[in-house]
Amino acid sequence: MRIRNRQLLAFAMMLLCSGLASAYLYRLTHAPWMSYREGVNHFSEHRFTEAIAALDFAIGHGIRRSDAFMILADSYMAIQRFAEALDTYEALLRINAEHALALWKTAGLYEQFGRFEDAMQRTRHLLEILPDDPAVLLRMARLLKFTGQWDEAIGYYSRLCSGDSLRPHIASELAEIYAWKREDAKAIEWFRYALSADPTDAQTRIRLARILFWSGYPEQAVSEYIRALGDST
């Protein structure tokens, strides 16, 4: 049986209509998924307010994907609505308590809000998941340093310093703790290490100058100050 051109055209039109209809019906029946997708697209194009509206709708209507929460929280972060970002990361952690990135970001926000105990609790949890992650070790060290738990902080800094993640500014942070503890020789040693890797770091050089003066080396302190200030007194 030969199919006429007119019949072919009719079939094609039917197929086209059913395709469009299915797409339309999908939109109607899967609105949260649609919003989720729109939210992701808005986020990738840096339209954060639109992304928030879309993802808020998607999550509010049952979408439980981790990345939906993450992107929503990241959108809040991008427009500096930090409290809402924190709430969203926390909501994600209620769904998945082991979500490393959410733990990391909540720790960062708690630190930013000055809630150091909460930040430390999140970071300790994260260390159970990623025990050797240098960034997590560094955050833990910094939190401990900031809260005056210097000995424990030194422990974490030492773990970083023994690996290949050691950066000059990390050595400088460790040196600073030794300086506060008045372990001058160790402080000088670590400051000098930091400066050998980055001789242009004026802030570290000033701190070295201070500790040299406190240790009874005023002449050396003077020359470090002069170098840090970049002039020839």
């Binding site: 197929l15 086209l16 059913s18 395709g19 469009l20 299915s22 797409a23 999908y26 939109r27 899967h30 998924w33 439980r64 994907r65 981790s66 990345d67 998945n96 082991e98 979500h99 490393a100 990135l101 959410a102 990391w104 994260l126 998941i129 990623l130 992650d133 960034a135 997590v136």
Partner: peptide, 23 residues
């Protein structure tokens, strides 16, 4: 068009495992 519409709208992606990579 029909295939495209199903591929785009009909796909329900699986929930990916959370990332373990810290920035």
């Amino acid at each position: 068009v029909l295939l495209w519409s199903w591929s785009v709208w009909g796909q329900a992606p699986s929930n990916p495992a959370p990332s373990k990579t810290i920035d």
